[in-house]
Computed example of a mutant assay.
Amino acid sequence: MGGGSVLKLPEHSGERLSRSPLILVAIQITFEDLGDIARADARAVQNVMGRTSWPGLFSNPILSGVLSATGINQQPTRQGWRITSPDAFSAASIAPDSATIETRAYPGWGTYSGHFSLLVGALAEVLDPQQHLRLGLRYINQVALPDWATDWKEFIPPTLLGPLLDETLGPGITATEQRIVIDVDEGAHCLLRHGAFADSDGKSQYLLDYDVFGESQPAFEPRKIMEEAERLHNVVRGLFRATITDKLYQHLR
């Protein structure tokens, strides 16, 4: 078990992969509850980010419930907002206690972190949160088994494949799903979801879903938030490289 140890993750150059398996990337920052966000405030955040690059503004009601002995008690709907890019592949979501920027067309860390920096700066200028409670990066990868391969043995480390390697059960397993909590160091943690499955066409896929996060209660300072985002991004890169084989990495390049 972790116990505050520091993992020695492999180096990753951060090069763009020609066969990138990324299907979704998101960064979320959590802060103290600011109350429902008015449309005028959401529009002001959009203006600071740049209306040309982020032209869409849509209401995004937030539904929540509390589990009790009698079931789930629905809580009052709260107001949130969604600001979208021209192609709608990227969006910034603003809630009373958090903000997220996500994309289904990842442009690389340099551009993507720039988008997040714009959002953080706009939040500081318009909404003025005082505490930075949690920062999380999520990278969801869906890797397709190469056409010339018959299984995952050469592409995913055996320690992750687990039951797929079992001589008795392995041939009959059609899907696996596992959740692993990893303490990377005292300030960074990861919930890794991974497993094999078949898509709608029957082609074998492997999910590698990294939810890397840090929790603290420092002041909401954009520069320090971006430094922490950079650090967590390096953690994601190292975890990705640690959970695929050299052969798969070369294939994705």
Score class of each variant (00 low, 15 high):
residue 1 M to E: 04
residue 4 G to H: 06
residue 4 G to P: 01
residue 5 S to L: 10
residue 6 V to Y: 00
residue 9 L to W: 06
residue 12 H to M: 06
residue 12 H to A: 12
residue 13 S to F: 01
residue 18 S to F: 07
residue 18 S to A: 10
residue 19 R to I: 08
residue 21 P to C: 11
residue 21 P to K: 11
residue 22 L to M: 15
residue 24 L to T: 07
residue 25 V to R: 12
residue 25 V to E: 11
residue 26 A to S: 14
residue 27 I to Q: 03
residue 29 I to Y: 00
residue 29 I to H: 04
residue 31 F to M: 13
residue 34 L to Q: 11
residue 36 D to T: 03
residue 36 D to F: 02
residue 37 I to S: 06
residue 40 A to W: 00
residue 40 A to V: 13
residue 41 D to P: 01
residue 49 M to F: 08
residue 49 M to P: 04
residue 52 T to D: 09
residue 52 T to S: 09
residue 53 S to W: 05
residue 55 P to V: 11
residue 56 G to H: 13
residue 60 N to H: 12
residue 61 P to K: 05
residue 66 V to Q: 14
residue 68 S to M: 07
residue 68 S to T: 15
residue 74 Q to S: 10
residue 75 Q to G: 02
residue 83 I to A: 07
residue 84 T to V: 14
residue 84 T to E: 14
residue 86 P to L: 08
residue 87 D to L: 07
residue 90 S to A: 15
residue 96 P to S: 07
residue 99 A to G: 08
residue 100 T to P: 01
residue 100 T to K: 01
residue 101 I to L: 14
residue 104 R to T: 15
residue 108 G to V: 05
residue 110 G to N: 12
residue 111 T to G: 01
residue 111 T to R: 12
residue 111 T to N: 09
residue 114 G to I: 15
residue 114 G to M: 13
residue 114 G to C: 14
residue 119 L to T: 05
residue 120 V to K: 02
residue 120 V to W: 02
residue 130 Q to T: 15
residue 139 Y to P: 01
residue 139 Y to G: 03
residue 141 N to M: 02
residue 143 V to E: 06
residue 145 L to Q: 08
residue 148 W to H: 12
residue 149 A to E: 10
residue 149 A to T: 04
residue 150 T to Y: 07
residue 151 D to S: 14
residue 151 D to Y: 02
residue 153 K to F: 03
residue 153 K to E: 09
residue 154 E to K: 14
residue 155 F to Q: 03
residue 155 F to G: 00
residue 155 F to N: 02
residue 157 P to G: 09
residue 157 P to K: 10
residue 158 P to L: 04
residue 159 T to G: 09
residue 161 L to P: 02
residue 162 G to K: 15
residue 162 G to H: 13
residue 164 L to R: 13
residue 167 E to C: 03
residue 168 T to S: 07
residue 168 T to I: 14
residue 168 T to C: 02
residue 168 T to M: 06
residue 170 G to Y: 04
residue 170 G to A: 05
residue 170 G to M: 03
residue 172 G to C: 04
residue 172 G to D: 07
residue 174 T to F: 07
residue 176 T to F: 08
residue 176 T to R: 09
residue 180 I to D: 08
residue 182 I to L: 11
residue 182 I to Y: 05
residue 182 I to V: 13
residue 183 D to H: 04
residue 190 C to T: 14
residue 191 L to G: 09
residue 193 R to K: 11
residue 194 H to C: 11
residue 195 G to I: 13
residue 195 G to V: 12
residue 196 A to E: 08
residue 199 D to R: 12
residue 201 D to G: 11
residue 202 G to I: 10
residue 204 S to Q: 15
residue 207 L to R: 15
residue 208 L to E: 03
residue 208 L to T: 12
residue 212 V to M: 00
residue 212 V to D: 00
residue 214 G to N: 05
residue 214 G to I: 08
residue 217 Q to W: 01
residue 217 Q to T: 13
residue 224 K to L: 12
residue 226 M to T: 03
residue 227 E to M: 10
residue 227 E to S: 11
residue 228 E to R: 12
residue 229 A to V: 06
residue 229 A to H: 00
residue 229 A to D: 00
residue 230 E to N: 15
residue 234 N to P: 00
residue 234 N to C: 02
residue 235 V to F: 06
residue 238 G to H: 03
residue 238 G to N: 03
residue 240 F to T: 08
residue 241 R to S: 04
residue 242 A to P: 04
residue 242 A to Y: 02
residue 243 T to N: 14
residue 244 I to P: 04
residue 244 I to Y: 06
residue 247 K to W: 05
residue 248 L to R: 08
residue 249 Y to P: 01
residue 250 Q to V: 12
